[in-house]
């Protein structure tokens, strides 16, 4: 038990370090990702991450991982998903910079925003 705990304790910071290292290039190579899609997972009646920042031209895809249907609808009427049942998706491509607040029209306590830069 002692040995196992020791290695587990050691492994965690090592894994974090590895992840950090692996993550570094993608942070600096932001320009190359301008067309890369962003994802919002709907889980436990919430949008995750709640705020997503993307460059102009990016496509955001929402996926419903709940057992209950949800929607993603812009409060300003910019975009409106159909009802997404479990595992269903909705995508929207943002062509203009701005902050887009949205919510689930079925469970309006669920809110999120897409920041397009």
């Amino acid at each position: 038990m002692k040995t196992k705990n020791f290695w587990a304790a050691l492994a965690t910071p090592m894994m974090i370090a590895t992840l950090l290292l692996a993550g570094t290039p993608s942070v600096t190579a932001n320009d190359q990702l301008s067309a890369a899609p962003a994802a919002v997972k709907i889980d436990n009646f919430s949008f995750g991450p709640q705020t997503v920042t993307v460059p102009v031209g990016a496509t955001v895809t929402w996926t419903n991982a709940d057992d209950i249907p949800h929607t993603a609808v812009s409060t300003e009427g910019v975009f409106k998903s159909k009802v997404m049942d479990t595992d269903e998706k909705f995508s929207y491509t943002f062509t203009k910079a701005g902050t887009y607040a949205y919510y689930c029209t079925i469970h309006p306590k669920m809110t999120g925003q897409i920041v397009v830069q």
Binding site: A101, Y102, Y103, T105, I106, P108, K109, T111
Partner: peptide
């Protein structure tokens, strides 16, 4: 009564 129509963002 109907309290499920035209729900507002952030509301109940």
């Amino acid at each position: 009564l109907v309290n499920v129509a035209n729900l507002k963002a952030g509301g109940m």
